[in-house]
């Protein structure tokens, strides 16, 4: 066999260097968040705080209503995710298992709208939401996001892979369409549903521009919006800013560590379509 271009050792060194660069901001964030103010600005930088200032976290959450932000983020994330799962399951079932007039056209129109950047919809949606009286409300934060064309496509593909005979069998066994969907298709599509849910949770938790424009009051801000406002309030107290950033980032990092298989397979699948 010919020699490979790079030895295993070189590959490890290159990948490790890259990994350090990727991790550095997170390490630096956590390190700063645990420092005393005098160590924050120290040069050369201090990597491991001489005394771990966990108090920075409580100080940060007291200087802005992070509890409220956190609560809002959880409410919005959970409800949008549940809502999207429901609409997606029903729609994907219709597209994969029911034959109806206009199916092709509806499908094509939805496919076409995926081409349009979401930013273009921002202003008309703002007008719609304000006409509905949903500015500065949970409805405004949640309702526009409880359906996703991408998720419908993803699940539809998955539903297609369930053999037709299974739905025949279920019919004969006494299932109506809805029961079949609920008792057979949904349990079978669990991996796809988890992927869809995770991508939604990540997207919803991190969403910024929409929550920024539809909320006015502190009571309804989500974490990213609150954090962004906090930068002005915290000024140059970087240890507090980093503590707050950690609070925003950490839940998603933990979620990702536990469920990464589903997240990565979802992202990979979105690529394989192309």
């Amino acid at each position: 066999m010919r020699k490979e271009a790079l030895s295993k050792g070189t590959i490890y060194i290159l990948l490790s260097l890259g990994a350090i660069l990727m991790l550095l901001p997170f390490v630096w964030m956590i390190s700063t968040s645990l420092k005393a103010p005098n160590e924050v600005m120290a040069m050369p930088p201090v990597w491991i705080p001489s005394e771990w200032q966990f108090g920075n976290y409580s100080e940060a959450s007291e200087s802005a209503p992070f509890g409220t932000y956190f609560f809002n983020s959880i409410v919005v994330t959970v409800l949008t995710t549940i809502g999207e799962l429901l609409t997606t399951i029903l729609a994907a079932y219709a597209f994969s298992r029911i034959n109806f007039y206009g199916k092709g056209i509806v499908f094509a129109v939805l496919l076409g709208t995926m081409m349009v950047p979401g930013e273009m919809l921002l202003i008309p949606n703002f007008v719609t939401v304000s006409n509905l009286g949903w500015i500065d409300s949970y409805e405004g934060l949640i309702v526009p996001w409880i359906a996703s064309i991408f998720s419908i496509f993803l699940l539809r593909q998955y539903f297609f892979s369930v053999p037709q005979e299974l739905s025949y069998a279920a019919k004969v066994d006494g299932c109506s369409d809805f029961k079949f969907l609920w008792y057979v298709m949904v349990p079978l599509a669990k991996p796809a549903l988890i992927t869809i849910a995770l991508l939604k949770i990540i997207g919803s938790w991190n969403a910024f521009l929409w929550p920024l424009i539809v909320t006015n009051s502190q009571e309804l801000r989500t974490l990213p919006v609150g954090l962004s406002a906090f930068t002005t309030e915290a000024g140059i107290k970087y240890e507090l800013l980093m503590a707050a950033s950690t609070m925003v980032i950490l839940p998603m990092l933990l979620l990702f560590f536990v469920m990464q298989k589903y997240v990565i397979s979802g992202v990979a699948r979105s690529g394989l379509k192309g």
Binding site: G18, P25, N206, V225, S245, L253, F256, I264
Partner: peptide, 11 residues
């Protein structure tokens, strides 16, 4: 390498 993808852009 994938970590940054799941984190809030703002944060």
């Amino acid at each position: 390498y994938f970590l940054p993808f799941v984190t809030s852009v703002v944060a």
